[in-house]
Amino acid sequence: MKNDLVFKTGLVKRALGWLVCLGAVVALVAIIYGIFTHPESQTPSELSSGAVIGVFLVGLAWAGIAIQNMRWSIEGENIIYHGLFKNRTIPLSKLAGFGQLTVIVMAFPFQHVDFYDRQLAHVARLPVSLKDWPKAEAWLAARLRYVVNDGSHILPKLRFADTPKI
Score class of each variant (00 low, 15 high):
41 S>Y: 10
41 S>Q: 15
42 Q>D: 04
43 T>F: 05
44 P>N: 13
45 S>V: 12
45 S>A: 15
46 E>S: 15
48 S>I: 10
49 S>T: 08
50 G>C: 08
54 G>L: 11
55 V>E: 11
55 V>Q: 12
56 F>P: 00
57 L>E: 07
57 L>K: 14
58 V>M: 08
59 G>K: 01
60 L>V: 06
60 L>Y: 06
67 I>K: 00
69 N>C: 10
72 W>F: 15
72 W>C: 04
73 S>P: 01
74 I>E: 11
75 E>D: 15
77 E>F: 03
80 I>P: 03
81 Y>M: 04
82 H>G: 02
86 K>L: 11
86 K>E: 08
86 K>S: 14
91 P>Y: 07
92 L>H: 07
92 L>V: 08
96 A>R: 10
101 L>C: 09
102 T>H: 06
103 V>D: 09
110 F>V: 06
111 Q>H: 13
114 D>F: 05
114 D>Q: 10
116 Y>S: 04
121 A>V: 00
126 L>R: 02
127 P>R: 04
129 S>G: 12
129 S>A: 10
131 K>A: 05
131 K>E: 06
132 D>C: 06
133 W>Y: 15
135 K>A: 14
136 A>P: 07
136 A>Y: 13
140 L>S: 07
144 L>N: 09
147 V>W: 02
147 V>I: 02
148 V>Y: 00
149 N>M: 04
152 S>T: 15
153 H>N: 13
